[in-house]
Design a protein around this nucleic acid. Structure first.
Lengths: 123, 123
DNA sequence: ACGATAATACAATAATTGTTGAAATATTGC
DNA sequence: GCAATATTTCAACAATTATTGTATTATCGT
């Protein structure tokens, strides 16, 4: 992750429409959605949505896969995690206790960030 | 964290100057820096830096504290963690295994996100 | 092959954002 | 109080980004 990649990601998510698109696709996970579905769900004109999908894809926040005449988009969640790593690089000049204190001040409990447990989803 | 707060944060970090400022202050942790130090360190004209500091502060990514005639800025790391939570809300429609798989595809090892261990910093 | 549909590209315009220098405000040290 | 310093505000201009309608490309079903 270099600075240009990071600012591209932030720039992408700074638009209300693009943030809606990305969050919608994060929810959909590996299923993703085709462009038309996204446009209908969010109530955005196809032309305008296309503009924003292009921006998100160029920032690598979305992947596209052609499915006949449809384009299926998926969120690149790994990139988002890389971005977090970039942002917190050298956090507190490597003082872990300070980091822990800062973390305690947030409500972050994102499941994608929880420690991996090997038997939590076994049936 | 609502949508407006989230887009404000992303908008703030989408500028090269503002990203540099934020990352610099993340490194500094609780010490923070005064405006002039930041300007000198990054080689940004004070007038322009002030513009960007204002934007970052309005987005709540920075806090300001007056110190005589200096203004000391600090990164609001908790807000950033809240943002991560917001972004990954309902990730994979609550399918934890899919989340874990996606996570495995990233290089994220941010120390601020590591599980809290109670004795790692004892001397 | 043909009409219908999915999606993108293009062009024009509207709106927002970034940068700079000069002026203003506030605090310090003498 | 006064000169020096730290920072911000303001105004002007430059640059970038967003939105919309129309046109284009490609695929599907028959």
């Amino acid at each position: 992750m270099d600075k240009l990649a990071a600012t591209s990601v932030f720039e992408s998510l700074s638009s209300s429409v693009r943030l809606d698109v990305f969050r919608l696709l994060v929810k959909k996970g590996l299923d993703g959605m085709v462009a038309g579905e996204i446009a209908t769900t969010l109530g955005v004109p196809p032309t305008n949505l296309s503009f924003h999908l292009k921006a998100l894809t160029q920032a690598r926040l979305l992947t596209v896969e052609q499915e006949g005449r449809y384009q299926r988009y998926r969120a690149n969640i790994a990139l988002m995690l890389d971005l977090i790593a970039y942002l917190t690089e050298e956090c507190c000049s490597g003082n872990p206790q300070q980091c822990v204190d800062l973390r305690a001040a947030s409500n972050c409990s994102a499941s994608v960030l929880q420690p991996i447990s090997t038997n939590s989803t076994k049936s």
